[in-house]
Simulated assay, not measured.
Amino acid sequence: MKSEPNVYSIDDLEREKRTIWDGVRNYQARNYLQQMQVGDIAFFYHSNCKSPSIVGLMMIIEANLPDPTQFDPKSSYFDPKATVEHPRWFTVRVQYQEKFSQVISLTTLKTKFSGDELLIVRKGNRLSVIPVAEEIAHKIRLL
């Protein structure tokens, strides 16, 4: 799960302990969020920064929640077509697990994995939420 560190960083999550992963407005990323289950572990990835990297881990503690920002007219993520009865955007609540002492850079990921193995290294990938196969996640943790 990607976030720009100047918007919301692993340090923010460490301090707050848990948060809703709100504001995702891509249907494919939303669908990936909806597939998450309580207890799943997610990589926290800093994007759009000097060295994009996996910086830590978080756990899904609530799943398939309507994203509250879609209902807030003051939010930049407001969706006038969404209603409480028929939400369009869903999210998860995450809990801080771990901040890596050594980040795993996108450059490193590109040397170890193909785009078929790990979507984040695929050219043109812009999704903020992507699945990682358990086998690949295990290999990443060994880097």
Rank of each mutant, 00 (worst) to 15 (best):
35 Q>A: 08
33 L>T: 00
6 N>M: 01
143 L>S: 06
142 L>M: 13
135 E>D: 08
81 K>P: 01
83 T>A: 14
127 L>G: 13
29 A>P: 11
25 R>C: 00
40 D>G: 08
5 P>R: 05
40 D>Y: 01
61 I>Q: 04
86 H>Y: 07
116 D>L: 09
108 T>W: 10
76 S>C: 13
129 V>P: 05
38 V>E: 11
97 Q>L: 15
136 I>L: 12
59 M>D: 04
54 I>F: 13
61 I>E: 05
51 S>Q: 08
138 H>T: 04
86 H>M: 03
64 N>D: 13
90 F>Y: 15
59 M>T: 08
55 V>D: 03
25 R>P: 08
22 D>G: 15
99 K>L: 02
65 L>Q: 11
76 S>F: 13
54 I>Q: 10
137 A>M: 10
128 S>F: 09
109 L>R: 08
44 F>L: 01
93 R>Y: 10
21 W>Y: 13
15 R>Y: 01
8 Y>G: 03
46 H>Y: 05
140 I>C: 06
44 F>E: 01
119 L>P: 07
26 N>E: 04
110 K>C: 14
89 W>Y: 05
73 P>S: 07
137 A>E: 03
73 P>I: 00
119 L>E: 15
71 F>G: 05
133 A>P: 01
63 A>K: 11
17 K>N: 00
28 Q>D: 02
27 Y>W: 02
128 S>V: 05
58 M>Y: 06
90 F>R: 05
66 P>T: 03
106 L>K: 03
28 Q>W: 09
99 K>R: 04
93 R>G: 08
126 R>G: 11
85 E>W: 10
129 V>I: 07
107 T>K: 15
128 S>D: 04
28 Q>F: 14
137 A>Q: 05
118 L>G: 05
67 D>Q: 03
83 T>S: 15
110 K>I: 09
